[in-house]
């Protein structure tokens, strides 16, 4: 697979130096053959640098989830491409840890088995896998629940398991689609703090999709604001506020206001 610049010498140029680069990504859903096709995404281009935390926000119907699935390699783009460290994404890869809103834990596996699922397909020895699972459980604070089945966990705990599961195979990028959208507000704020801790301690690149503007401003180095019909990038906002960010802060409120304005600005 060739990178965006297809360099034979393996020295990719600037867009490919980023951990993730979206290059003119478009998606058209064709209708039933009577010309009723829908343009869901149009010429989406932005990049996420190595170790950067980028949030993607936009109004409903702006194609956030479609874009998420394209980056994950689960849906094919009609135009353009996604590059992960300069290599075109052509399908799902364990270089990306993917976290979904609805957790999607394997209900027949215990917490520890869920976390170890991806490791079973790696070339690690059983001892290494075991150690890695314990490390991940410790990271998300679920060691004492290692033998529990998902059915007995709360939403917040399930999402911690999902995050640990995606991190276990040591991906370069953490790709998250509204991961905290299904938990209550209090748990959400706690999970946001925990995610920032994990991000700080692992140095992963994070691309985080959300519809919650305050969440995006709390977490991101940069916020990619999308517009709808067709889904496209409206503007990229650098959030220049020291972490940890306080919601009562004037600068914080200013960024939230600005992003909301961009989202609400109509087509």
């Amino acid at each position: 697979m060739a990178g965006v610049n297809g360099d034979a010498d393996g020295a990719p140029l600037s867009p490919a130096a980023a951990s993730v680069a979206l290059d003119g990504v478009g998606k058209t859903y064709s209708g039933d053959g009577d010309g009723g096709s829908v343009r869901a995404l149009d010429d989406v281009s932005f990049s996420v640098a190595d170790g950067e935390f980028v949030c993607l926000v936009g109004p409903s119907g702006c194609g956030k989830t479609t874009l998420f699935r394209i980056v994950a390699g689960l849906t094919e783009a009609t135009d353009g491409r996604v590059l992960l460290d300069g290599t075109e994404v052509t399908g799902p890869t364990t270089d990306m840890g993917v976290v979904f809103q609805e957790y999607h834990l394997f209900p027949w596996l215990t917490v520890a088995e869920n976390v170890g699922f991806g490791l079973e397909r790696s070339d690690r020895s059983p001892d290494e896998r075991e150690a890695r699972v314990e490390e991940m459980l410790d990271l998300v604070g679920l060691t004492e629940f290692r033998d529990a089945y998902p059915k007995s966990l709360s939403g917040g705990m399930k999402q911690r398991v999902a995050i640990a599961r995606s991190l276990a195979v040591d991906p370069d990028l953490l790709l998250m689609d509204e991961p905290f959208g299904a938990v209550d507000a209090q748990t959400r704020e706690m999970l946001q703090r925990e995610l920032l801790d994990v991000w700080a301690s692992t140095g992963k690149t994070v691309l985080f999709v959300t519809h919650d503007v305050a969440e995006a401003v709390t977490l991101a180095d940069r916020v990619v604001v999308m517009a709808a019909e067709p889904g496209r990038v409206r503007e990229v906002v650098d959030v220049d506020v020291e972490r940890p960010r306080e919601r009562g802060d004037a600068a914080f409120a200013e960024y939230v206001g600005r992003v909301r304005e961009l989202i609400g600005a109509g087509p």
Partner: peptide, 19 residues
């Protein structure tokens, strides 16, 4: 069987019908 679980599996390295 939920497509979502299959998607999760693919992102975790599940490849091919047998797997």
């Amino acid at each position: 069987v939920s497509e979502d679980l299959l998607d999760v599996g693919r992102t975790l390295g599940v490849r091919g019908d047998l797997d």
